[in-house]
């Protein structure tokens, strides 16, 4: 009997651990959503904050997150674009379906790879920077100083970073797609002789209105998720500098988890919708 009791206690203990983790994840998500709402609300109702103040922070954010990330994005976009074009054209030519290359590229690059890789690059470069910057601001009492001067940190710090983040992620994703599709084609031209007219026609026919919708949805929300999670983590710093690397690591991990789950959910819903439209489900 004691063995049974012990085993049952252990099972319940495991349930406890899982339950606590689930509750923590729900609370964390609720706090993130609340912060998005509060920062937008603060920006709207903050009569003092002029557009000039917001614009200066937004433009700095776009410069750092967007412009300075271009070299890295270029390398990764060229690599992924040329790999997908080379591999797909080789496989499709074996199957005699070369004209399908446009569809394949839109599905792989535009809908899936570009939003995810762009988000990961932004998390690695800018998410870490934002989390550690805000964490250090907490340590140096800059956030307290803003509050005591009547400046709402949510409208002064978080909101411009959200706006800058959304704009940057969308521009970078667009740039990624362009370089992948065009640059990738030029790279593969060395080893694979495909006429550009054929390639561009195939791409043009493959693009649909829902691709634009998917692009806007995935990239704008990735921008929001990354920057709100990183700002939130940065603002969690309470005691001292030793917390800054801890919150930065957590910001990266949580941003990756949330962005991946979001992209996966959107893709799943999109394809379920497609299947329903086709009458398969």
């Amino acid at each position: 009997m004691p063995y049974v009791t012990k085993a049952a206690t252990s099972v319940f203990h495991q349930f406890d651990i899982v339950g606590r983790k689930v509750i923590y994840a729900i609370e964390y998500t609720a706090n993130i959503l609340l912060m998005v709402y509060l920062s937008i609300r603060a920006a709207i109702f903050d009569q003092a904050q002029g557009l000039r103040t917001v614009f200066s922070v937004v433009s700095a954010q776009i410069y750092f997150t967007g412009f300075q990330a271009l070299p890295l994005i270029t390398v990764l976009a060229l690599a992924s674009g040329s790999i997908v074009i080379m591999q797909s054209s080789a496989q499709l030519s074996l199957l005699g379906g070369n004209e399908m290359i446009g569809n394949l590229l839109v599905v792989v690059i535009v809908r899936e790879v570009a939003p995810l890789i762009t988000a990961l690059i932004v998390i690695a470069r800018s998410g870490t920077a934002v989390a550690s910057e805000i964490g250090n601001m907490r340590v140096n009492k800059e956030i307290e100083a803003l509050e005591v001067m009547g400046i709402n940190p949510l409208s002064y710090i978080v909101f411009p970073r959200l706006v800058g983040g959304i704009v940057s992620v969308m521009c970078l994703a667009f740039y990624y797609i362009f370089i992948s599709l065009i640059g990738g084609f030029l790279v593969t031209k060395i080893v694979h002789d495909m006429p550009f007219a054929f390639y561009s026609d195939s791409l043009a026919q493959a693009f649909a209105a829902e691709d634009v919708l998917l692009f806007l949805l995935k990239n704008s929300f990735s921008g929001i998720i990354i920057f709100v999670v990183c700002c939130y983590q940065g603002l969690l710093v309470q005691q001292g500098p030793h917390e800054v690397p801890q919150v930065t690591t957590k910001a990266v991990v949580n941003s990756i988890i949330y962005v991946t789950i979001f992209n996966l959910t959107v893709t799943t819903l999109f394809y379920l919708n497609q299947l329903i439209k086709l009458g398969i489900l």
Binding site: G50, N140, E144, I151
Partner: peptide
Amino acid sequence: YGFEYGGLINNRTIYQNLILPIQYH
């Protein structure tokens, strides 16, 4: 409020720190 330590916005100059509340409000 004068802080015991810290409290200045690090990415602004001393002048910009001083003028910040006036400009903002």
